[in-house]
Simulated assay, not measured.
Amino acid sequence: MFSLALPLDRLGPMRGGGPRVNPQHVMLRTPHDPIPGRDDDGLQRAADDAVYMPLQCSTQWDAFCHIFYDGVTYGGAPADSITTLDGAARNSITNLGERALGRGVLLDLARHRGAQTLLPGEAIQAEDLAACAEKQGVEVGAGDFLLVRTGHLESRRTTGDWADFAGGPAPGLGVGAAEFLCERGVTAVASDTWGLEAIPFETPDLMSPLHVILLVNAGIYIGEMWDLEALAADCADDGVYEFFLIAQPLMVTGATGTPLNPLAIK
């Protein structure tokens, strides 16, 4: 069993400023604090804590309502289906709910190309995914959860400095990858990069073009910042690149994304 999640703490990859910050974990009380209303000379104590975190600051799912194009998102849901008070009335990540489990497939593009990591800006297209799957001897089919390893997360983590991992130049899927994903009818695609897509984007006039294709048009969930290293090493060792994946979202009503602890079981 392999956990594919990054730790939720202040040392995470959100170092670039902006609204997405690393989780802030605070203690509400410690065993040094008396329990109100109890006078037992310190015999009994308790600890409680809390966390503040953007829902997309670490290992995550993007909901369909994360991206809008020309005023709508998946299924024609308009922009006013999201409000400041209630969040998303349609296409919330809670729709994934109990359905976020099934056959997972890893395509290890870094090992396929004989590299520790793919280079920033290096785009993975449909033919690259197909060639990697053929070499690994695995098929990607309808309903699968496809995981794509670039090595980018591990290359930054091992330096001890996340630097511009969040939002900076990165390898990832190119627009052409949509052909592979849509033809096979996958449920979701996740990777070990901050934004799934190759950055700089292939479309200078459009930010995150693959997000638009997958979330707005195709209805394919996107996972980002998944830690695939241990799983990839095991797959390379035994030559088995398929597994059972459990990746339930937190059931935050109206959320456009969610942190999670995906588990791959071989």
Score class of each variant (00 low, 15 high):
A230F: 04
R149L: 09
T193W: 10
A255R: 04
G121C: 07
H211Y: 13
P209S: 10
F64G: 03
F180H: 11
I35C: 08
S3C: 08
Q136M: 12
P204T: 05
G87A: 03
L118I: 06
F68S: 05
F244D: 14
A166E: 11
A198N: 11
G185Y: 07
T73E: 09
G16L: 04
G195L: 12
Q24K: 06
F145G: 01
T117Y: 04
G18D: 08
L245K: 01
G195F: 06
E229Y: 06
D86I: 00
V26P: 00
P204N: 04
L263R: 06
A47E: 15
G223H: 02
D41P: 01
A255K: 02
S58D: 13
G168K: 07
L214A: 06
A63P: 10
P171G: 06
L119W: 13
Q248M: 07
V138Y: 01
L206W: 01
Q44D: 05
P171A: 14
G16W: 05
G143W: 05
I213L: 15
G42D: 08
R45M: 00
R10N: 05
C235E: 03
G97W: 06
R111W: 14
L43A: 15
P259M: 08
T30K: 03
L8N: 13
R38Q: 14
H32A: 14
D108I: 04
L146H: 11
T253N: 07
H211L: 04
Q116R: 14
F64V: 01
L96S: 03
G141Q: 15
G102S: 14
G141L: 08
H112V: 07
E122P: 09
I265R: 01
P204M: 01
G102L: 09
D234K: 14
G185H: 11
I35N: 10
